[in-house]
Design a protein around this nucleic acid. Sequence first.
DNA 1: GTTGAAAATATTGGCGCCAATTTTGATGCA
DNA 2: TGCATCAAAATTGGCGCCAATATTTTCAAC
Lengths: 209, 209
Amino acid sequence: MAARKKTKPSIDEISQAIARDIQTGRLPAGTWLKQIDLQERYGCKRLDVRRALDNLVLKRFVQHEPHRGYYVFRLKEPDISENRQVRVILESAAAEGVIAHATAEDIAALTDLAEAFATKVREGSLLEQFEANNAFHKALYGICGNGELLSLILEYRGRGPAAPLTQWKSFARLEQSAQEHFDMIRAIEARDVKALRRVTKRHIYQTAE
Amino acid sequence: MAARKKTKPSIDEISQAIARDIQTGRLPAGTWLKQIDLQERYGCKRLDVRRALDNLVLKRFVQHEPHRGYYVFRLKEPDISENRQVRVILESAAAEGVIAHATAEDIAALTDLAEAFATKVREGSLLEQFEANNAFHKALYGICGNGELLSLILEYRGRGPAAPLTQWKSFARLEQSAQEHFDMIRAIEARDVKALRRVTKRHIYQTAE
DNA sequence: GTTGAAAATATTGGCGCCAATTTTGATGCA
DNA sequence: TGCATCAAAATTGGCGCCAATATTTTCAAC
């Protein structure tokens, strides 16, 4: 087991750690985030916790009520719908660039990542699944060549409806996601923008067909 | 003239004030932001200034160097290009919704705002032009019906290449922008998505034709 | 036993002070 | 004069303490 690292984590690292805990469902929507707990869990001062929480407010992961504290944000239904629409817009736009720029090496790398995720679906922990999934999408949209667009997509994927992972209720749904990754790769190989967009939309809305 | 308001400005208000000063060119790219100056200019404590600056780092308005301070961010050329691409993606996507949802009242309101901007171009200050322009685009993309998309567009318009306003070098360019606003309205009236997208792209890239 | 109010406790929020670091300025020497 | 070195000043950064507010507990009255 790794020893507790001594170097003080940066504000950004704290933010990301909290964000990940939210996305993996360790901190469910609505949870009040006590600053004392956070400062102990992440080994930092309270001012650092507060700055990290301020960042997360801006990123819409948490909300704040004066003199009550910070709590995990819960996306309301109309916002969830709007969020998905934005994701479709962004990822559909990126699809074009992905098709245009994907090399054979890119496709090979994507295949590895898609297989890694599929493996984790069967054998891994929730956190491992989460990270493998992120790695795939990061690599996928990294191909499009627009770093700004990439970070925007990742930001919106993370923001999503509370936590995508907690929504992966069934094993079957997880396997479908893994399958869709392979469908995307096939579309890229075939240089078929329309097909890639179709799969992407299905992936975002998590519909059967 | 309004008296200096006594109520302490919120962190968000300070952020917005600084952001506006950056966008209007009062704080040119590269300027070092001394915390003492800011706390006096905006009438708040130094901790508030620092929290506001942290927010602006996240929004990419300023950058930070430890023990040196915060300075106004300067977008590099490749990033400017990527930024414009993202704007085209977002605003093109919104165009569809705008066309679909625009009512007669919306169009009338837009016309008023477009005329207000055109007037300010001839008679107003830089700040007034800036705000009239923002008001037009906010109303325009508010029509699309997706609040998430609206705020994303506004965020990216603001982020832009340093400051859009400082780039409005010539009066002729300003007048062209004003004209393009009217072109957009005409496209909306005609329910012509393609035309709206064409004008929008021209507006973003600020090309002659 | 229930209800209401008031004290006690817990948590957040803000400010001031001082340490860490950089920048500026001065001094001495070749 | 030019340059390196070192001291002084200015600026940022972090921490601890205490006030402000919310929450819980206690206790008394009905």
